[in-house]
Structure formats: C-alpha cells, structure tokens
C-alpha cells in the first residue's frame, strides 16, 4: 500500500495528528521534517503504521494505542509516555522519561535512553539497545525493561512488580532493588522481547533485577535509612 506523506515543514502538526486520528483508515503514513516538534503522533488509537523521518521533540507517540510508530531519529523527553498498546521504535537515542507510565505495548530504543527510562512503568515492555541513565525504572509497577547496555545510578529504585533484565553493568542499585537468579521463564521472556526488538544477544548474558519488597510495608523498627 502506498504511504500517505506529510511534510511538517508544509503542513501544521495539528492537521497531521487529526488525520492520524480520524482519516488514516489503515493506510501507512510517513512524516517528513519533524525537526524536533513536540507531540507528533500522540494519542493514536488504531492499528496504523507511522514512520517519522527525523528527530522528534517531547512526548512523541504518547498515549499510543494499537499503532506502530517508527522514529527514524532521536526522541525528546517522554517518548511513548503512557502508551497503552502497540509498538514504538526509536532508531536513535531517547531523552529522559522514555516510556514513562506505559500501561502496555512495546517501546524499542536502538540507542541509549537517558535518565528515568520506564519511570512508573505500569505494564508496558521496554527494550533498550544501549544504556540507560540514572533512576531508570523508578517505582515501576508492572512490565519488563530489557537493557542491553549498562545502567547508571539507582536502577529500579522503589520497584514494585516490574522486572528489569540487564546485560551490562550497574553503577548502583536503587533502594529495595536486588539482583535475583534467572529462571527458565526469565530466559524465555528475555529471548522473546529481544526477538521482537530484533536484537541478537544471548538471553544467558542477562541478569534479573527485581524488588526485594522490603518497602512494601511500613517497618517501624527500621532505622529509616533508605
């Protein structure tokens, strides 16, 4: 099927987003000259394919449902934040808070992700080809984060039920995060997500980080040194 092409240097973003919401009818869309604009392809709610040829600004593909959005460049703050379902693929690097609060769907970042990647994740999956910045997966409640590179400080601080799989090194674990042994199910999960993201690492190279669950209940006897 031929793509519908929009050039953001010619067409206002609001018009493009309205087309994506109401008139795409399953047709693939290509967006040219994004030039770092904010809010590109936000709030999509149908199974369409959108390719963005260049770097995007804040909140690209935010609140995505069902759509398959590919960003052929870097993403600014909060890419795929609050995603519900579908797939968002960043071919470059992602700035802070990538995939924040995502409830479902898959976010793939080929390059590095900056600080707070997957903060407050609520069920989505994130696969990062490179490394993640500090405070990633902070208070993540559900979902999986695969990190093929390294993590900076305080990974998984105050985690709930989300699980992190990391291939590289961890500068420091966040409060209540701990390394745990990998089970067969973990290897299978990592293998499946790597395959979806088309990264060809061996799942055996990954380690599991999850919550020690010591912060789940108030402990009056603790010395409060979290």
């Amino acid at each position: 099927m031929d793509s519908v092409i929009f050039d953001l240097s010619q067409t206002p973003l609001r018009e493009v987003n309205q087309f994506l919401h109401h008139n795409a009818n399953g047709k693939p869309i290509k967006i040219l000259n994004p030039n770092g604009a904010h809010n590109i392809a936000i709030g999509l709610d149908s199974p369409i394919s959108v390719e963005i040829a260049g770097h995007v600004g804040y909140y690209a593909a935010g609140m995505n449902q069902l759509a398959n959005v590919t960003i052929d460049g870097n993403a600014g703050t909060g890419v795929a934040e609050n995603m519900m379902s579908g797939r968002v693929h960043v071919k470059g690097f992602a700035s802070v808070s990538a995939g924040a609060s995502a409830q479902g769907g898959l976010l793939i970042i080929d390059g590095n992700a900056s600080l707070r990647c997957g903060i407050s994740l609520k069920g989505g999956d994130i696969v990062v080809g490179g490394s993640v910045g500090s405070f990633s997966a902070f208070m993540a409640q559900a979902g999986r984060i695969i990190i093929c590179g390294d993590a900076a400080d305080a990974i998984g601080d105050s985690l709930y039920e989300a699980v992190i799989y990391i291939r590289g090194t961890v500068k420091s674990l966040g409060a209540d995060a701990q390394f745990e042994p990998m089970s067969e199910t973990d290897y299978q999960t990592v293998g499946e997500l790597l395959a979806k993201a088309e990264f060809c690492h061996d799942p055996k190279e990954f380690k599991r980080i999850a919550s020690a669950k010591q912060l789940y209940h108030w402990n009056a006897d603790a010395n409060q040194e979290y």
Partner: peptide
C-alpha cells in the same frame, strides 16, 4: 535546550548529536 533550535543549522544531518550527561 531542544533539537528544534538546531534543526535548521547547515549540515546538521551529519552532525554528531548528543545529550550532555548530568
């Protein structure tokens, strides 16, 4: 602060782009 302000620079498509670390 954002790429929007760099997008129109000459040859920016071949520039080395990066976010400074904290």
């Amino acid at each position: 602060s954002e790429f929007r302000s760099l997008a129109h620079l000459p040859d920016v498509n071949h520039a080395h782009l990066y976010e400074p670390a904290p």
